[in-house]
Simulated scan of single mutants.
Amino acid sequence: MNILFVADPLESFKIHKDTTFSMMREAQKRGHQVTACEMTDVRWQQGESVTAQVREIRLTGDAATWFTETRTHRAALKDFDAVVMRKDPPFDSEYFYATHLLGQAEREGAKVFNSPAALRNHPEKLAIMEFPQFIAPTLVTKSEADIRAFHAQHGDIILKPLDGMGGTGIFKVGADGLNLGVIIETLNQGGAQTVMVQQFLPGIAHGDKRVLLIGGKPVPFCLARIPQGGEVRGNLAAGGKGVAQPISTRDREIAEALGPILVSRGLTLVGLDIIGDSLTEINVTSPTCFQEITDQMGCDVAALFMDAVEAALPNA
């Protein structure tokens, strides 16, 4: 098979931890052609299919120069056996437009993972609203008064922007309300921006768990991202320590409830964020943690993903 990965620049990959790299490595191991492009390479013109200027590559096994480029050319996305969307967040206007280009490619016959429509319909923080039985007390609002009332009710709270990634823009406010006013001003921009507010979960001390769903089924191990040095954020990008561990009974309960629903919508790969017993986010754009789980637990997550992709293709 020829698999196209729509990703960030190859030269920017940190291959010791990059999930897209691990997918590519598994694809090549199975004899598939690995091809890559960036979203800036994708175009549509009237009378043509959606195409991209693509790079056929060969992984070398060398950490210093991890790939060689064997060919570059323009190709229609529908002519690939699979298109794997791995462009990192944020989900901004350009990402939104990208899902429409990929949606057109789908109409032309391309097989895209994850589904472009599903990417649009599952904003990573707001998607939890569909599953209130699994989440902690949560508020989504632009209103300062609503936020203050929520704080008065719940004491310790977390505030975060809806378009943040990697733990950026997340604030914790204690029961004393110190700095709550300035944090609200910073996040809601005078009532112009919507904010998510959640009850603080002390379970964060044991990690913000990334539970992976592949083909609607939970991977048996998760990565607990544990805050370090007085931080309340467990995100690896914010300095959290990643500790792989078996998923808990509660993790599995949440994953098995959501898995069939999400995969039926075209979400082959999903990253659930769970703190303690509560679901906090549903990540669909570019879920990570493959290599950390594989390295620490010996569970080949990239192989599970490639199995799911192949199983979803009619001629694999």
Rank of each mutant, 00 (worst) to 15 (best):
L4S: 07
F5R: 05
D8P: 01
D8L: 06
H16Y: 10
K17D: 08
T20Y: 03
M24V: 02
M24R: 01
R25C: 03
A27M: 06
K29G: 01
R30M: 05
H32S: 02
H32N: 07
Q33C: 00
W44H: 15
W44M: 12
V50T: 14
A52W: 10
R55V: 05
E56G: 08
I57G: 03
R58I: 03
T60H: 01
G61R: 08
A63Y: 12
T65D: 14
T65S: 09
F67G: 06
T70Q: 14
R71V: 13
R74S: 15
R74N: 13
A75Q: 15
A75E: 13
A75N: 04
K78D: 02
K78V: 07
A82I: 03
V83Q: 01
V84N: 02
R86D: 10
P89Y: 10
F91R: 11
D92W: 06
Y97K: 11
A98Y: 07
A98I: 09
H100R: 15
L102C: 13
G103M: 10
Q104N: 08
R107A: 13
E108Y: 04
G109Q: 05
K111M: 06
V112D: 09
N114V: 03
P116G: 13
P116A: 11
L119T: 00
P123E: 04
K125I: 07
K125P: 04
F134L: 01
V140H: 14
T141Q: 14
K142G: 07
K142L: 12
D146Q: 15
R148E: 07
R148D: 06
A149M: 09
H154V: 04
L159C: 14
K160L: 07
P161H: 05
L162E: 12
D163R: 12
I170Q: 08
K172S: 14
N179M: 14
I184D: 11
T186Q: 05
T186H: 07
N188A: 05
G191E: 14
G191I: 11
A192N: 12
Q198G: 07
Q198V: 04
Q199W: 00
H206A: 09
H206L: 02
G207N: 06
K209D: 11
V211D: 07
G215M: 11
P220V: 10
F221P: 02
R225D: 06
P227C: 03
E231C: 01
V232I: 15
A238M: 01
G242F: 00
S248Q: 03
R250I: 13
R252V: 00
R252K: 15
E253F: 04
A255E: 08
A255Y: 01
A257C: 04
P260H: 07
L262A: 13
R265W: 00
T268C: 13
L269E: 01
V270F: 14
D273C: 14
I275W: 02
S278R: 08
S278I: 00
S278A: 09
T280W: 10
E281V: 12
E281L: 10
I282R: 13
S286W: 12
E292S: 14
I293L: 10
I293K: 11
I293H: 14
T294V: 00
V301K: 06
V301W: 00
A302K: 05
A303M: 12
A303R: 13
L304I: 05
L304G: 07
E310I: 02
A311K: 15
L313N: 06
P314Q: 11
